[in-house]
Design a protein around this nucleic acid. Structure first.
Lengths: 206, 206
DNA sequence: TTCACTATTGGACGTGCGCGCAATAGAGTG
DNA sequence: CACTCTATTGCGCGCACGTCCAATAGTGAA
């Protein structure tokens, strides 16, 4: 294959590995899969990554960070806490993010047996929860939300989203995607004392 | 190894496979693992199961059915809908069930790529949701619960439980187990219009 | 006691895995 | 143009996997 600049090649390997992993799952992705996808030899991967585990860790990080930063950006644009909350929710309703959520399902499954995955997964989950905590805290300050326990409310909201999305992604026929998002929104509305439908409305505005 | 009655041996194989899988995960459980655990040869497993996939499917079914039927039994004992709901919740708070929940994490991860797992997982999830729907319907009839949309409320409750338990099992340090259960209970109380703490109280009674 | 049945053994077979390494080839520099 | 550096090749190693099968050894019936 054509000789590439190291930085470019390294990126190409990560991209190829991500593409394979989104179809086969992180744990089922092999060195040969990635090499075939790029049309190169398998030895090349080990020229850039000390081990396959290291490559897969980089892929997981990349996917997770991209998702998180995209959500952060969407939230910055929104003005009110309710708007920011709606922006947060938007990620879950988008079918394009199903692949990313599949990575999460894999990570949660693997976390119980692999300490490295567990710690990375935990840290990222906490970041998602803190993002939510921040908005809830703001909403309480402005008086938009009820004065509830912030930490608890954030974990409840995140868990409700995860649990519903899990059903949509793992068993595509069991709940309609639209219903899952609406149900999650209505659950959080009750939690934060928002008028029924307020969150759903803010989501359409965005 | 001592010669066994076929039924007994078959059961022994399933038990051994379950023990191994609860430590290593279903997809990482090998024929040799199971044989070693029993102290027999690996060939014996294929005398009873046509393939390793078939054995693992039996193990998953056994674990899932046991959990479901134990919950059903606990619910039958309780008198009121609130009591039954508390009995349903009890399964999630019990650390002994962490192993079972790990099976679920594996199943959800695998469902996206394996049609057999997906269908079995989906059917079982629906059974869990229907169990909840039934109780909620009863509670609405008796007037204990608010008159909400049953299907939606059941999916929300199940998802909240799954999402919170996921954090407890996958990242043991992130949320205290007790808090997760209390948060789930308070979320459902709001959903069904129960007085705050009513569900938590019913859980201690049981 | 004999015999048929089958539970159980133990290793062979082919496959796919991560990894390592000597050989090769292309790109930049003097 | 010659030379150095290193990106890239392609294969081999050792291992673990699921599966298969001929040989062996217990057990219950005749």
């Amino acid at each position: 294959m054509t000789r590439m600049n190291p930085d470019v090649r390294r990126q190409a390997i990560v991209d190829a590995a991500q593409a394979v992993a989104s179809r086969k799952g992180l744990s089922a992705t092999t060195v040969r899969d990635v090499a075939d996808r790029m049309g190169t030899s398998s030895g090349l991967i080990h020229h850039y990554f000390a081990s396959m585990d290291e490559l897969l860790a980089v892929v997981f990080d990349k996917v997770a960070e991209a998702d998180l930063s995209a959500t952060r950006k969407r939230m910055e644009i929104a003005m009110s806490p309710t708007g920011k909350l709606a922006a947060y929710f938007a990620a879950w309703g988008d079918p394009d993010n199903d692949e990313t959520f599949q990575f999460w399902l894999d990570a949660w499954s693997e976390a119980g047996r692999n300490a490295a995955v567990r710690e990375r997964s935990r840290d990222l989950n906490i970041e998602w929860q803190e993002l939510l905590s921040e908005v809830i805290r703001q909403g309480i300050e402005t008086g938009e939300f009820n004065d509830t326990e912030v930490d608890a409310a954030a974990w409840k909201a995140l868990s409700l989203l995860d649990g519903l999305t899990l059903q949509v992604v793992a068993h595509p026929t069991v709940i309609e995607r639209g219903k899952a998002v609406m149900w999650a929104a209505s659950g959080i509305e009750k939690e934060l004392g928002l008028p029924p439908g307020a969150l759903a409305e803010a989501m359409q505005d965005a």
